[in-house]
């Protein structure tokens, strides 16, 4: 009796169920928002790594013995006219690494601003000679040159240089610049070494940094707190590098030469001229642009990222035309908050 009434009552309200098309639209919108937020959090770490590499790289290259450049007093040119583009690849910590992060660094033609555009590692791309696959796998298949080729055909720009960096290089960079000074807002206890990092501001050496950035368990927000810590490390590194004096800190600069896991190919760029141009570039001159992702594509059980069909052409057009400042103004949603 009551059972029958229940069935009738359910049947009567079936028509009130949410409209399927509206639901779909809602899901797509919500998914996009979540993805952008998640990627933005992860991305800030990458942006900071790139900032460090940009600042450190010229120091290293300058000291490579077979590339000692001549500097004429008062001459600050030696860079090609117009904007500069570099490709920075963060490698996975494996024997046969893929690229964990792929970042385009664009320096405006007045060399006063730098823009960082991140590409998702799982982006679905055409890999010449290997059909379609994930961007990350291109490094396994053909190293930096193949990855460079793919990003060039995606964006339509050519690169002035390519930089690769491993996770271990972070520790060595920290040691090379004489450690960093930074502040922790929460206590971190290492599950690897048992070491406790208390709240407060104090110096960290390379080993401490390597230990700290591996901790994400037992933190208030897990991986997000870890990402924030990585970001703090990177910003502190930028400050340390800024303080470094090319002439008086010769030992430190020499130590940077021995940072393994960092490879730099600057092509025809005059490293000293680049260093001179970039040494005044500060955190505030960097603009991070979020990976222009659209939605995940499921192909035979594997999830791939896709580029946003509307925003991506505008972004790449602005990149080619050195008009990223205008893009940034028009698309505040796609920027990484400082």
């Amino acid at each position: 009796m009551i059972e029958q009434q229940l069935r009738e009552s359910f049947a009567r309200h079936e028509g009130e169920a949410p409209n399927v098309d509206e639901l779909r639209q809602g899901i797509v919108t919500l998914t996009g928002k979540r993805r952008r937020r998640r990627i933005a959090l992860r991305y800030t770490g990458v942006a900071a790594i790139v900032a460090v590499v940009l600042l450190v790289v010229p120091l290293i290259v300058k000291n490579v013995p077979n590339r000692v450049p001549h500097i004429a007093p008062g001459v600050t040119t030696g860079l090609p006219d117009g904007p500069l583009n570099f490709l920075v690849l963060g490698l996975e910590p494996f024997d046969q690494p893929g690229s964990d992060s792929v970042t385009v660094v664009h320096i405006s033609s007045d060399h006063k601003r730098a823009y960082l555009i991140d590409f998702e590692r799982d982006l679905l791309v055409d890999i010449p000679g290997h059909g379609q696959g994930k961007l990350t796998s291109a490094y396994k298949l053909g190293g930096a040159p193949l990855t460079e080729q793919i990003v060039q055909s995606l964006t339509g720009i050519t690169f002035n240089g390519v930089v690769t960096i491993t996770v271990d290089a972070l520790r060595d960079l920290t040691t090379a610049v004489g450690g960093i000074q930074m502040c922790l807002p929460v206590t971190v206890k290492s599950i690897h070494t048992g070491r406790t990092f208390p709240v407060g501001c104090y110096p960290f050496d390379g080993a401490a940094v390597a230990d700290l950035v591996r901790q994400r368990m037992n933190l208030p927000m897990g991986g997000y707190t870890r990402d924030a810590n990585i970001q703090r490390v990177m910003m502190a590194l930028v400050s340390s590098v800024h303080r470094l004096n090319l002439f008086t800190d010769a030992n430190r600069v020499a130590a940077l030469l021995h940072v393994s896991g960092l490879q730099v190919d600057l092509g025809d760029i005059d490293a000293i001229a680049l260093a001179a141009q970039l040494k005044n570039l500060d955190g505030k001159d960097l603009t991070g642009i979020v990976s222009p992702n659209y939605r995940t594509l499921d192909k035979a059980g594997v999830a791939y990222e896709q580029l946003d069909p509307v925003v991506t052409p505008q972004l790449f057009g602005a990149l080619r035309d050195d008009a990223l400042a205008q893009f940034a103004t028009a698309h505040p949603d796609w920027l990484v908050n400082h």
């Binding site: 359910f10 009130e16 169920a17 949410p18 409209n19 639901l23 779909r24 899901i27 919500l30």
Partner: peptide, 28 residues
């Protein structure tokens, strides 16, 4: 399956708006 899931959420919550939130959150 979305249509069936939508009806199921409607029966659970008794309210189309809550049902919509529930289905969207689940699918994300």
């Amino acid at each position: 399956r979305l249509a069936a899931l939508s009806r199921y959420a409607m029966m659970l919550t008794g309210d189309p708006h809550t049902a919509q939130d529930l289905v969207q959150e689940t699918m994300v």
